[in-house]
């Protein structure tokens, strides 16, 4: 396990060191008004939605699935909450709006689960449906406008502080929860079993379908919370751009973290590191002063490098010992 995380960790360390070389104060942390500030906190804060979505995605990918609809679901969550809040500033309205949004996200997750587990459609296509239609639905909710709100309670989710930014705390809480539930109970093993062979695990008495439904619902709820963070951070819902391409970032984070797209094994720590790599990469490009649009080139290079290093065939080609064995 440690060995598998070695390369992602090295990549992350290299990126952080690069930042330190460019901005010597990168690791400096300071407390101001009881809030913690610093380069590392920024990385964590900006990466919180990606991490959250990547957590849901990890479990989906572990069952040999994939969920392309998370970005659209995030947009819907933000749109529904902002439309519900409207011009109100009461905490109750904000909480009710968020509750409605998350319940709706759970329903969307059920829908994905139904298509994948119930109808047996390939996950990539099943979730492509919601990815395409979902953004349309989000625009329908906001009527094509960018809905702005001014609600103190709602702002806390994405921009609030309890020493650390609230969004970091939420993401870490979910990470801890998932780690506890899947690693301290049999659930994690069952998810991996379904990923290795759904039919065999069904015959062995594992309720494959229920597990597949569950992971899609979980992924959608994670996406919903991430959508709330994104929209709360700017106090607005932008149906077109909120969470755009975040599904790609999340999938990359999961894959960089060593979870195989073929299903069957997953690493939550890996996903955490993967999400941090993706976010640090973006931050690095900003700090070293390259045009932000060029981030994509770096991203492509890092992704290919990390995937190549992890690919069994590439490893065999690199190591003479293994070539001799095979």
């Amino acid at each position: 396990m440690k060995n598998r995380l070695l390369w992602p960790l090295l990549a992350l360390a290299a990126l952080l060191l690069l930042n330190l070389a460019v901005t010597p104060s990168f690791f400096a942390l300071r407390i101001q008004d009881g809030h913690l500030y610093g380069g590392l906190v920024d990385v964590l804060k900006n990466g919180a939605p990606t991490l959250l979505i990547a957590l849901g995605m990890t479990l989906v990918i572990a069952t040999r699935g994939i969920d392309l609809s998370v970005g659209a679901v995030a947009a819907i969550a933000g749109a529904v909450t902002c439309v519900h809040i409207g011009t109100s500033d009461s905490t109750g309205t904000a909480l009710a709006g968020m509750a409605i949004a998350l319940v709706l996200c759970a329903v969307l997750g059920l829908w994905n689960g139904f298509l994948v587990a119930g109808m047996g459609i390939q996950p990539i296509i099943a979730t492509l449906v919601l990815m395409t239609a979902g953004r349309g639905v989000a625009m329908l909710v906001t009527e094509g406008q960018i809905v702005t709100v001014n609600n103190t309670a709602y702002r806390q989710v994405g921009a609030g502080f309890v020493v650390l930014p609230v969004s970091i705390l939420i993401s870490l809480l979910v990470l801890g929860l998932v780690a506890f539930v899947t690693r301290k109970t049999a659930l994690g093993m069952l998810i991996e079993a379904v990923g290795v062979n759904p039919e065999a695990s069904r015959l062995a008495g594992v309720r494959s379908r229920t597990i597949i439904w569950t992971v899609y619902v979980f992924a959608a709820v994670c996406a919903g919370i991430a959508g709330l963070m994104i929209s709360s951070n700017v106090s607005a819902a932008d149906a077109n751009n909120a969470g755009l391409w975040i599904e790609m970032d999340a999938i990359l984070a999961v894959v960089i973290g060593g979870t195989s797209l073929a299903g069957g094994r997953y690493s939550l720590t890996g996903t955490l590191i993967g999400a941090l790599i993706i976010q640090t990469l973006t931050t690095t490009v900003y700090t070293i002063g390259v045009a932000p649009e060029v981030t994509l080139v770096f991203k492509a290079v890092v992704v290919i490098a990390v995937c190549l290093v992890q690919a069994p065939k590439a490893r065999a080609a690199l190591s003479f010992r293994k070539v001799a064995v095979s």
């Binding site: 045009a291 981030t295 080139v297 991203k299 492509a300 190549l308």
Partner: peptide
Amino acid sequence: FDIQPFIVTLAGMFLARGLCFLISV
């Protein structure tokens, strides 16, 4: 290298789009 087409072409997508911006924003 037996890497999933999904991931490789996703990287290709990022690369091609990034190259556009390298030429001109």
